[in-house]
């Protein structure tokens, strides 16, 4: 009897480091599919629970600045996490570039070529892009058009989504013939899921570095600490890359 109580207590002591915690994380819409897969894998490995909220980085920034209860923030850019850091809303030293995004010109009803001639031919009804004022992928799309010398001629055909998800919806529903979307939205398991796409060459736009930060509320949350460590592993990075993103810096085993 005494022995079994001792065993039980020993088990409790040993089990203690594995106590599971919960975390709520705000994630930019372009990273939706990748984050869902990462969270599932991370939960299975660690036993922690991750709650995800998806939306535009600008809205999350406003909400976090006004006390939204998120433990961490995965932005679509570097500027917003940096601004939160400046405002003292983040855990210092936690900022990390979790992905470098890629831009694709996508269509479900037109065949793409490999150098963007479909844009020059100008035989499309609308060109969807994310609002360049709000979304990094929209700003990148405008850089591409400018570098191709097509920003002025195509402008009359622009339709702007408030974020990259809505831009995807405009093209996916067939309302816009062409659209600049995040490669991650149309790419799964290393291949194109639907339609036809031109993966825009990297020389045509500035890299879309996406940063994540731990927010003050998540400072002592073991789930967040473990998640940020997990993101640097080779395993997590191969998931991120399978959605068409690139990684920066060395990975850890």
């Amino acid at each position: 009897m005494k022995k079994s109580v001792f065993c039980f207590l020993l088990m409790l002591i040993l089990a203690k480091p594995c106590v599971a915690e919960e975390a709520t994380i705000a994630v930019a819409s372009n990273f939706t599919s990748a984050m869902q897969e990462l969270a599932t894998d991370f939960e299975r490995q660690s036993g922690h629970r991750i709650h995800l909220a998806f939306g535009s980085s600008g809205k999350f920034f406003a909400q976090i600045s006004n006390g939204a209860p998120f433990d961490a923030f995965f932005s679509a850019d570097q500027a917003k996490p940096a601004a939160l850091e400046q405002a003292g809303q983040t855990v210092s030293g936690s900022r990390l570039t979790y992905a470098v995004g890629a831009l694709a010109l996508w269509s479900i009803n037109q065949q793409m070529d490999q150098n963007g001639d479909v844009l020059r031919r100008n035989q499309f009804n609308k060109l969807a892009l994310a609002n360049p004022r709000l979304a990094p992928y929209g700003a990148a799309a405008v850089q591409v058009l400018t570098n191709l010398g097509l920003d002025k001629t195509s402008r009359a055909k622009w339709v702007q989504g408030e974020n990259i998800s809505q831009t995807y919806q405009f093209v996916g529903s067939g309302n816009a013939d062409l659209g600049f979307v995040a490669l991650s939205q149309i790419y799964a398991n290393g291949q194109l899921a639907q339609g036809s796409a031109w993966i825009v060459p990297k020389e045509l736009y500035a890299p879309i570095r996406q940063d994540a930060v731990v927010l003050k509320k998540g400072e002592k949350n073991q789930a967040v600490i473990d998640l940020f460590a997990y993101l640097k592993t080779k395993r997590a990075r191969s998931v991120i890359e399978s959605f068409g993103y690139q990684n920066e810096g060395p990975a850890i085993e």
Binding site: S56, G58, K59, F61, A62, N131, R133, L134, E162
Partner: peptide, 8 residues
């Protein structure tokens, strides 16, 4: 208005 807010 939404754009202004989103653009901070």
């Amino acid at each position: 208005i939404y754009d202004h807010v989103e653009a901070l």
